[in-house]
Structures are given as structure tokens and as C-alpha cells.
Computed example of a mutant assay.
Amino acid sequence: MIKDLLNDKPTKLFLIFTSFFVANALIAECIGGKLFSLEKLLGLPVHTFTLFGQTGLSYTLTAGVLLWPLEFVMTDIVNEYFGPKAVRRISYIAVGLISYAFIMFWVAMSVPADSWWKGSKADAGIPDMQNAFSSIFGQGMWIILGSLTAFLVSQIVDVTVFHKIKKRTGEKHVWLRATGSTVVSQLVDSFIVLYIAFKLGNNWSWQRVLAICLVNYSYKFVVAVVLTPVIYLMEHRIERYLGHDTAKRMKAAAMGKEHPLEEPVPGI
């Protein structure tokens, strides 16, 4: 039975998507504590600007934004072939495992550090490895709560918008439902994480929250548009892997419809 299950192409595809989805989300959370300058990355001069009365703004972003757009691409692909129930399931799995990871980070930070290890990198400019370790993995609880809440809510929004668009367009305009659902869900994601982590957790002003939200979202919006061809490339590769008939049946089942000439694909 296990051999048949693992040889089933739709099942193998779902396992691959789920594994990448969870790993990508966890890595994004782990590297999210680093900030980088987008202007410097692109070799451009850094210019500050004012938005909603908040001065000194620039494109300083968390390293997590390098990976989060891929998460929404994967959401759209899973939604296309497996439906909203599958997206919700892997989203819950991801949130559960990320929560587990942060608990283990806390345990690792709490166990007594060896005295030799604490000073082992002093020559490299790190006088206390315990403080360095805790600084990297010890994100504030408000940030963790904001990030996980934003992730879960934005995934649900993405699924909902995606299917509303697909019900109107059918199989046409893949770019519209993929990009449209992503740009809406990314706005929700950007606002919720900043609101919980910094408005509630650090008493930021509404002007600062909205200004930084818009800066972060403008980057995510551009990346969502740039990644649209990736959706077409992945769908092309998936159709080649599954075969046209199987892919068509899966898409119909994802929309709650049965292909007229075939048996429906069992729900995952």
C-alpha cells in the first residue's frame, strides 16, 4: 500500500509541495531577524523619503522577504491543483511546526552554556557566543505572534481571492488569479505583522505602521508581478509530469467539479 501511495504522481507532488512550503516558511522565519538595504543590494544610492509624516524611510527590509514571495507562489500552485482544503492543511502544518521550532529555540537558549564555548569566538569579534546565539534565535514574542498570525490569515485570504477570480475566469488568465490573490494577501500579511508586532507590542504610531507597511508592500507587489512567469513555468512542468488528463481532472476537483470524462481525483 505504501509503495502504491508513494508511486502515485499527485501524492508525490503534494508531498514535495508540502515539504518545500514548510521548509521555506521556517527558513524565512529564522532569517527574518536580519535587515538589509535593498538599494545597496541593487547597487543604488540610498535615498530617504517621507510617507504619512514618517521621515527617514528607505528600502530597509527583513531578509525574510527574500523567501516569503515563494510561499505565495506555492500557495497558488497548490490551490490550482489540490484546492483550498489542501492549502489550509499545509498552512496549519507550517504554523504548527514553526511554533514547535520556536519552542525548541527557546529551550536551546535556556540550557546552560559551556564556559569555553561562550568565549570561543572572541578573536572573531564575538565576545559572548551565548548572547550572539540568543540574539539570532530569540525574536520577541510579539514578532513571533504577529508573523504567525499574519501568515495564517494571509494564506486564507490568498485562497479565497484565488478561487473567486477563478470562478469568474475559468482556466483563462492564470496570471490574474495568481498575481491578484498574491498582491491582496501580501497587503494583509504586511499590515497584520506590523500591527501586532509593533503597534500592539511596541506602541508604534499609526503613521509609522502604515508608512513601513506601504514600503514593505510596494516591494512585495513588484516581486509578485515579477514572479508571475514562474507560475506559468511551474504549471507547464507539472502538466508534463502528471499528464494533461490527470492535471485537468485535478484542477476540476480543486474547484469542486468533476471532469466529465474521468473519475474525480480523491481529495488529499
Rank of each mutant, 00 (worst) to 15 (best):
P45V: 02
G146K: 06
P84D: 08
M109I: 10
G146Q: 10
F49P: 00
T60F: 15
N79M: 14
V95S: 07
A122H: 03
D114I: 08
L145K: 12
N79C: 11
Y100C: 09
M109C: 07
V65K: 02
G138P: 02
A63P: 11
N79H: 09
W142M: 15
G125F: 13
P112A: 14
G96T: 06
P45C: 05
Y100L: 15
S58W: 00
G96C: 15
H47S: 05
V87D: 01
P45Q: 04
G140Y: 14
F49G: 00
R88T: 07
V87G: 05
Q54C: 03
A94W: 05
P45F: 00
M129P: 00
W116P: 03
Y92M: 14
T75F: 08
P45K: 04
E80K: 09
D128R: 04
I103D: 07
D114H: 12
F52W: 14
Y81W: 09
L51S: 11
G140M: 12
F52S: 03
L97S: 14
V111Y: 05
L67M: 10
Y59C: 10
F133Q: 00
G64I: 09
N131S: 11
M104Y: 10
W68L: 03
I126F: 08
G140E: 12
I144S: 07
W117L: 15
A86L: 00
S91T: 09
T149K: 05
A86H: 00
F137I: 03
V107C: 07
A86Y: 06
S120F: 08
I98N: 04
T62Q: 11
E80T: 11
L57T: 03
L148G: 03
G119V: 09
V107E: 14
M109L: 11
T149N: 10
E80L: 06
F105T: 06
L97F: 12
I103K: 07
V87W: 02
L66R: 06
G56R: 02
Y81G: 01
S115Q: 15
I90E: 12
W142L: 08
A108C: 12
S115D: 15
T60E: 09
F72H: 02
I143E: 06
F82N: 04
F72R: 05
E80C: 04
V65W: 12
D114N: 15
L67S: 07
T149E: 06
V111R: 06
F82C: 12
G83W: 01
F52Q: 10
M104T: 07
G140L: 12
I136Q: 02
Q130T: 09
L57Q: 04
Y100N: 03
K85W: 02
F52D: 02
K85R: 11
G96F: 08
V46I: 06
A122G: 02
V87T: 08
